[in-house]
């Protein structure tokens, strides 16, 4: 039996983390959380989470940055918004999950070869470069980067899609790609969070 220290000391926190998250647009109301658990109760994916959404709210507010950013929970959020509309304190939990995903990607603290953050980044890169997502290409890239073996299991689906005219490896492009690049560069130069 392996035992692990579970007590938390104040030094285990990253002070100011909660306050920082709560200063982001959409995340302010986390302050009002009463830990009722409605979010977890309605979340269709809470059954697989290491921390329930309610626990993520508590940990975030109490500055447990490392625990939160390393949790599976934030990646399991499918953006269905059920928690956001049911929360009795009007906390936009989905938006908080987005914010935490961003921070985890930014700090590179997510499980290696974990496909969800990889998909998010591949998706974003493709949109930034081409303006549109070509689903076939995106999924192929994803499998190559995370789990090439699993891709074999998807071959049948791919074939089916091909047969029904729904799969293509051609990259879609918009005309004004230069505009897109400039928009992205402008945002990079500003900081909403400042």
């Amino acid at each position: 039996m392996e035992i692990k220290r579970t007590i938390k000391y104040q030094a285990d926190r990253v002070r100011g983390f909660g306050r920082e998250v709560m200063s982001v647009p959409g995340c302010e109301k986390l302050k009002d959380c009463i830990q009722c658990g409605t979010c977890s109760g309605v979340c269709p994916l809470s059954i697989y989470m290491d921390f329930t959404p309610r626990q993520v709210m508590a940990l975030t507010r109490e500055d447990f940055k490392n625990e939160v950013l390393a949790s599976h929970t934030i990646w399991l959020c499918a953006s269905c918004y059920a928690c956001t509309v049911e929360c009795p304190r009007e906390i936009r939990i989905t938006d908080i999950m987005y914010e935490l995903k961003q921070r985890a990607i930014h700090e590179g603290v997510y499980p290696k070869r974990f496909p969800i953050p990889v998909l998010a980044q591949e998706f974003t890169t493709m949109v930034r470069q081409h303006g549109r997502v070509s689903e076939g290409l995106l999924v192929t890239k994803l499998y190559l980067k995370t789990n090439p073996i699993a891709a074999l299991g998807m071959a049948k689906l791919g074939m089916g899609l091909m047969k029904t005219g729904r799969f293509s490896l051609k990259q879609e492009n918009i005309k004004q790609r230069a505009d897109l690049a400039r928009i992205v560069a402008t945002v990079d130069n500003e900081s909403v969070k400042a």
Binding site: Q35, C36, G37, T38, C39, S40, G41, V42, C43, S46, I47, T52, R54, Q55
Partner: peptide, 11 residues
């Protein structure tokens, strides 16, 4: 009834 048992920490 679907609920988080918040004291047990699970749904």
């Amino acid at each position: 009834i679907r609920v988080e048992d918040t004291l047990a920490g699970m749904v």
